[in-house]
Design a protein around this nucleic acid. Structure first.
Lengths: 234, 234
DNA sequence: CAGTGGTCTAGACCACCTT
DNA sequence: AGGTGGTCTAGACCACTGG
């Protein structure tokens, strides 16, 4: 029998299981019935139960181990998922008008801290790009980025006056590994000027390092305008 | 035939698909073959292909639509997953020794900003708990939290001198909805004192609102010590 | 060793969406 | 209208691991 209105689907099972946890019927740390028994209860196959429980475990509600069974997590290791949109999308999602402006773009010798951070050989050239992202005429983000030509040779011919380095990289280097950090930093004179805030102001800051198959591609610092907050619900 | 060493599993397919995207064989925005064709290519059933592609879509690499097919996302909407551990776990994972200290805990009338934020009726009582989390003797996080007795009556009898309000809440209210934000704030005199930083220092700050079935449970501000960064890889 | 979850097959119907 | 992904069934073997 195919799934239809009167069939129990894996989504129904997820909802039911969650409500039993909420209601306290299935206490934290307690063991759930095994898949076969649940399949009988829900009048479906074990495959369907399996998918429901697998997804719930993936979402951090349950812990599953062979032979040991499925357990309600006592301190749900809820994982917050932050979608990391491109700046343009973020501004437009707020109903704003995105505008990009290049500040400077030049090839230079990698500063020592960058060489250390990206494991570059000393004295290696990097493309240093600084730019601004606006919401209308309001500063939204100041970006300070270095791109490694040894990994992305095309960068020497790239023109960042019209397209931001991030969008350019995504088009050019389709797939990468990323390390992303967020922290609070202090606006120095440069940043304060670009973001139009007093010097010394706290600035929400992102740092992003990107590799392509083990080769360092880019290091970027993103300084967000005053009042920015990164939010998620779960 | 069951899965065994020579069978193509959904994991193999995921790896293969990812490598084809990396290598540029499947360009961004391009359409993948449909599931049936891929099943033939990989000598497996469509079910297995389906699981592989479904998970890749879930991870943000692909976009799938009925009839339209499966497409490589041009600007991979990579979702960063930050695991939100409890403070204790976070400190211990760093190899540190966790220590908790209650600063104050008292019932008070909800300030107006809090009433607005949590949609409380004005003049409603809330439990205000302030506490510190240490790594050894080094301040790690200062926590300023309000708990709504109307939603969690037990809070009036709770003793926060030994257990932190977050751990207590997890034990007491096993299941909740959460809104989590991160921002950069400025250390006022109080925060500066607790975190042992100069006043005015930028402080990485988390704000967490929790509901239980639509009822506001708690609002918490978490101020992290200097140098804190939230990091993830993907 | 034996129970539990992990995964695959082969086939089917359906929902949705683009054309 | 027809193709594509979404999901379910019924059955099977396997991998891991707790007792």
């Amino acid at each position: 029998m195919p799934q239809s209105s009167d069939t129990t689907s894996y989504k129904d099972i997820k909802i039911t299981v969650l409500s039993r946890i909420r209601s306290g019927e299935w206490q934290p740390d307690s063991l759930l019935p095994n898949e076969q028994d649940l399949a009988v209860e829900f009048s479906c196959t074990r495959t369907t139960v399996n998918r429901a429980l697998r997804e719930l475990a993936d979402e951090g509600y349950l812990e599953r181990r062979r032979k040991a069974g499925t357990r309600v997590l006592s301190a749900p290791q809820r994982q917050a998922r932050f979608t990391i949109p491109m700046v343009r999308d973020e501004v437009e999602a707020m109903g704003g008008t995105y505008r990009y402006a290049l500040v400077s773009s030049k090839l230079e010798i990698a500063p020592e801290w960058l060489s250390a951070r990206l494991a570059l050989s000393s004295g290696q050239n990097v493309m240093h790009v600084r730019c601004m992202h606006f919401n209308g005429n309001t500063p939204f983000q100041y970006e300070d980025r270095w791109i490694v030509p040894a990994s992305v040779p095309q960068v020497k011919q790239a023109d960042f006056s019209q397209i931001g380095p991030n969008e350019w990289l995504i088009q050019t280097v389709p797939f990468t590994n990323v390390e992303l950090s967020f922290l609070a930093s202090r606006a120095d004179a440069t940043i304060a000027g670009f973001l139009d805030v007093p010097e010394g102001e706290p600035v929400f800051t992102g740092e992003r390092i990107t590799w392509l198959q083990g080769q360092p591609v880019t290091f970027a610092k993103m300084f967000f305008a005053a009042g920015y907050r990164m939010t998620t619900q779960f």
